[in-house]
Amino acid sequence: MSKRDTKFRVLVCIHTPQNIPTIINLLEASNTTKKSPICIYILHLVELTGRTSAMLIVHDTRKPDCPALNRTQAQSDHIINAFENYEQHVGCVSVHPLTAISPYFTMHEDICHLAEDKRVAYIIVPFHKQQTVDGGMEATKMAYITINQNVLANAPCSVGILVDRGLNGSNRLVANQCSHHVAMLFFGGPNDREALSYAWRISEHPGISLIAMQFVPGDTNF
């Protein structure tokens, strides 16, 4: 279980720039402090097309910006810039951007190998649906379901599937008042204990109220 007084390592997966506001709001809720900083590995997931080979690109944020050569690079540049700005405006956060270019059916291998190599406590992947204007949910790409299922089956650590139901730029955390209510459902096991540790971390944010509910086996003999 990750300790709250140590650096919290998390691998965040992104399909498109639309995922950025929700993920940044979630990271803001993670309550970074000098005693408990966060190390974030941002992984832009790109489908491999054509005859090019699969690759993992580690971006050097210290290099000057260059004009994007294609749409994929433009998206990666946008993602990198967004999280660089977040890193500069929030203390105790270090951001490491990467891009994984691979077929959808093997993309989970890149995610899991990177998580193991960087010894992260959590992998966060976007849900395969996004919220519509009327409050419903619509699928983005059905291939995302397979990616998420494969990550859940093979990950070396705990996995969180981020479902955006309003945790975006229009519904930001307010520091001086409770603006979000979080429910933690605890059934038992190492993944739930890891999730409980994360929930306690979030609960220390002044803008969040936490309710933890433990479920225990009942007596079936009536």
Rank of each mutant, 00 (worst) to 15 (best):
M142F: 15
M184A: 08
E109N: 11
S2M: 12
L69Y: 07
R51F: 14
L152D: 05
L152A: 13
M137W: 07
I111L: 09
L114N: 09
R201F: 03
P126D: 13
T22K: 01
D164Y: 05
G160R: 01
S2D: 11
C39A: 11
I80R: 08
D77Q: 14
G160D: 06
A143R: 14
L185K: 01
I161R: 01
V159Y: 12
M55A: 09
I208G: 03
N85P: 02
A155Y: 11
H108N: 14
R119S: 06
V58L: 11
K34T: 01
S53P: 00
G135S: 13
C92S: 14
S170G: 01
A54Y: 02
H89V: 05
L173R: 02
R71W: 07
L152P: 01
A212W: 00
V216K: 07
P206I: 01
P217N: 13
S179P: 02
D219C: 09
Q88W: 05
C178N: 06
D117N: 10
P37V: 06
V12C: 10
I145L: 15
H128T: 07
L167Q: 00
I101F: 01
H59K: 14
D164Q: 08
M142L: 13
K35A: 01
A183F: 01
A195T: 09
H96A: 09
T33K: 06
